[in-house]
Design a protein around this nucleic acid. Sequence first.
DNA 1: TTGTAGGCGTTATCAC
DNA 2: GTGATAACGCCTACAA
Lengths: 332, 332
Amino acid sequence: MEDVARTAGVSRMTVSRALRDDGSVSPATRARIMKIVARMNYVPDQSAGTLATKRSGFVATLVPSLNNSHFAESVQTLSDEVESIGLQLLLGHTAYSTAREEQLVESMLKRRPEVIVLPFDGHSPRTNRLLKQANVPVIEQWEIPSKPIDYTVGFSNREAARRMAAALIERGYRNIAFVSEEDDAWTRGAARRAGFEQAMLEAGLSTSHMVRYGKPPMTIEHGYEVGSAFKRYFNSVDCVFCVSDAPAFGVLSAFKSQNIRVPEDIAVVGFGNFEVSRFSSPAISTVEVDAKGIGRETGRLICRLLGGNEDPSPIVRHTPVDVQLRWRESTL
Amino acid sequence: MEDVARTAGVSRMTVSRALRDDGSVSPATRARIMKIVARMNYVPDQSAGTLATKRSGFVATLVPSLNNSHFAESVQTLSDEVESIGLQLLLGHTAYSTAREEQLVESMLKRRPEVIVLPFDGHSPRTNRLLKQANVPVIEQWEIPSKPIDYTVGFSNREAARRMAAALIERGYRNIAFVSEEDDAWTRGAARRAGFEQAMLEAGLSTSHMVRYGKPPMTIEHGYEVGSAFKRYFNSVDCVFCVSDAPAFGVLSAFKSQNIRVPEDIAVVGFGNFEVSRFSSPAISTVEVDAKGIGRETGRLICRLLGGNEDPSPIVRHTPVDVQLRWRESTL
DNA sequence: TTGTAGGCGTTATCAC
DNA sequence: GTGATAACGCCTACAA
């Protein structure tokens, strides 16, 4: 910056002002400076700026997985929103591990992010402590924690699964199996399972067909393997409700290859409305959740939290996101 | 840090050393300091550290889209690799726009990343200039540019598509259509198209069935729409080669709903080996590219570029990544 | 093993 | 509208 200032015959301060276009530099001077900046390929160092202003311009974001179109879409949408107000995304990949989450939160915090965004899938006690003490707005996504830290954007997975199960019962299914992961304590998958069980119990039905298979997250392949063991898991079952569309698609594929007809012999239902459920044949009935909506609402919340905030309405702590039941060909 | 130092009865310097565990602090002192750090919830400020050491610890990464399992997987793998050596991922989303790429490169550079990773899909002249002058290692992925800036990790899309087309011809297909996007200049999709055309011309076949539809990136839906206009696009065609698996799946779905048999009436081929092509019925023949491999090799290259670098072998400028033809049920 | 002095590249603040 | 000065919070280099 010194070099630019000398070349332009002004002080560093004036260059700094010209660069930030704060309006207090005469147009002529500013034009001259900008030309020199371009010619000298000068790129300001933002870590120095951060140090001086105490504004990092970072949005720390954690994801369990990117190879899941929900998270991928919400991150992508969030990325667009925050870039539009000049913030940058610091991304961490937890791989569904609370230990990694803890470690990532710790390293993110060293960057003094202006907000920290992460899905709620259960946090370790230390993660909770770090987040609370950080003095940074925390946005938990995808689930409504019983004890939110600050802000939440999402829906109740339990309630969504309960609604779907209740609707299946209303459609006449009685022996419904639920396919989910092993070791899913505190995850959103476990919340869905709880919602399923609640609906079944409320209807006086048995929850004896709980299939637990594979580590989170369940994949198409896990579903295929479960579906291949039809006799073992699905004897006398009339409907298979899967914790997500991926295993639902796998179950469906396995059924097809055994000439088990869907939905005539057995129904298959997923959760998430991933693209694959829409284009499989038969198309899979599922619970539609609005991934882009989560990214978009998170982005808006960040804008209101950090930005000029023209909007005078109060900032609410919980932003609900739509959930809908999508009926397709895989159910009668 | 001052507070911690005072409480521990040492100087700030000793605290700084203890925190970084540089070995020059007596175990007893360090233990005492660490305890106080934990108790006071002190979190070092890395932007100050960056300023002092001139090491940001950032890996700047650009992606055209995350809602594409190739990019999602490679970013995820890369994320794991870089986090393991204490670096953090700064993510930018270009949405396949060279203008946004340029803007993102500019804002990333202000953070002084230690390396910048981006897919090659053509850069604007200014992007090229910025990258070259930045004095930061640049890793271009997914395609081999004719004029790489520094390092490349990827394969030739043109050559891969040429191989697939040549193999289709060898299997007896003659009237092969190629489905790709409009306005794909300089993209990897265009390279695939060129490879297809090369193979056809080399075999003395006509390239009259070039279907151009939709803006990049092509989706399942685009494919479905193209496939639905069978008479318009695929009269007398015996094989449809799509620029990626997504439109291939869409084309296949559209054919099925018109009772057009695949592969008996017409073959369908994709590019990418996305999960959907493996589990569709019929499963789709495709060109398998190793997304995780790209992430992993990029990560390794970064480790060698920045890390201790125990490996004495020279660092090569181009790291090739495997491409294979996967034959499935959608071709005879 | 520990401490002191100085600087990293910006910006806030106050003066002109 | 522009400039001088003093931080911002850490680390390098050197000294003890």
